[in-house]
């Protein structure tokens, strides 16, 4: 069990208010989608949760202990992170990238054995990467690369996963594939917080939506409770038609609201 709790977290940088009194908790068994316009503070919130950024006020705890007090290894064993920008400095082989997910357990890319090897083999299979194992990452398509990064994040077998825009710039089919992988991770006992820009996709896969705007959490609840045309207007300043039927949520943005 692992639980991240943010309590009235504020972040200010250069006089700008990036995050204001944000409170939320992330735990296994739940897929949470973090949604809101660009600059709403979603990434800042995640960075605070990962001790990548120190809040100017408020507290962030992991299992009741301040997140900043965790050693990087201890934290990484509990929380896995898939950042928004994923620059690959070298065209490393697919299997080696996935193996890096075992870093917190002392695994090295050069010698992978025991539990580490098992974990890597498992996630490679789950993410359909076996046939790509020896490929250079610079020869992969966008969809394949996204699966590699996901597999890397899953390989840590951490109880919590934080993913910042895991489906950005993917075609609809690959978006569904990645979200299905994250959903399966949660159904198998993990907990995930995912930043998404596709609201319909978020509503379809997430248990809970956290709506953010201007550094504040505006709403936090199940799609059924929080996804409304009024909310879309309030958060994104768009007029939208929201509907749910047996096929799931559908959402049509009809224009910018006045």
């Amino acid at each position: 069990m692992a639980e991240i709790k943010l309590d009235n977290v504020c972040v200010e940088a250069g006089g700008a208010r990036l995050l204001h009194n944000a409170s939320a908790s992330f735990r296994p068994g739940e897929l949470i989608a973090l949604i809101g316009p660009n600059g709403a503070g979603k990434t800042t919130l995640l960075k605070c949760a990962l001790a990548l950024m120190a809040p100017s006020a408020g507290t962030v705890t992991l299992n009741g202990r301040a997140i900043a007090d965790f050693s990087p290894i201890e934290r990484a064993r509990l929380v896995s992170y898939l950042p928004q920008s994923r620059p690959l400095a070298w065209p490393v082989r697919v299997r080696d990238v996935v193996a890096l997910g075992r870093y917190a357990y002392g695994a090295s890319t050069t010698k992978l054995k025991g539990e580490d090897a098992t974990a890597v083999t498992e996630v490679m299979r789950d993410c359909d990467l076996n046939h790509l194992a020896d490929r250079r990452t610079d020869t992969l398509s966008g969809g394949e690369l996204a699966r590699v990064h996901c597999a890397r994040a899953f390989a840590a077998k951490a109880p919590l996963l934080i993913a910042d825009e895991p489906v950005a710039s993917l075609d609809p089919s690959h978006q569904f594939q990645i979200m299905a992988l994250i959903r399966a991770y949660v159904d198998n006992g993990g907990g995930a917080v995912v930043v998404l820009h596709d609201i319909a996709l978020a509503a379809r896969f997430a248990d809970r939506l956290i709506w953010m705007k201007d550094g504040e959490i505006n709403a936090n609840g199940a799609p059924d409770e929080t996804l409304t045309a009024a909310r879309m207007k309030q958060i994104f300043a768009v007029s939208a038609m929201v509907a749910k039927d047996q096929n799931g949520w559908s959402l049509t943005v009809t224009g910018r609201s006045a």
Binding site: P72, I73, A76, R77, L82, P83, S85, P87, L88, A89
Partner: peptide, 19 residues
């Protein structure tokens, strides 16, 4: 090992547990 992890960028390396 940290050098390998840094292939993924500093943010991801932090997430992996690199000090």
């Amino acid at each position: 090992r940290a050098l390998s992890a840094l292939s993924l960028g500093e943010e991801a390396a932090h997430g992996l547990g690199v000090d």
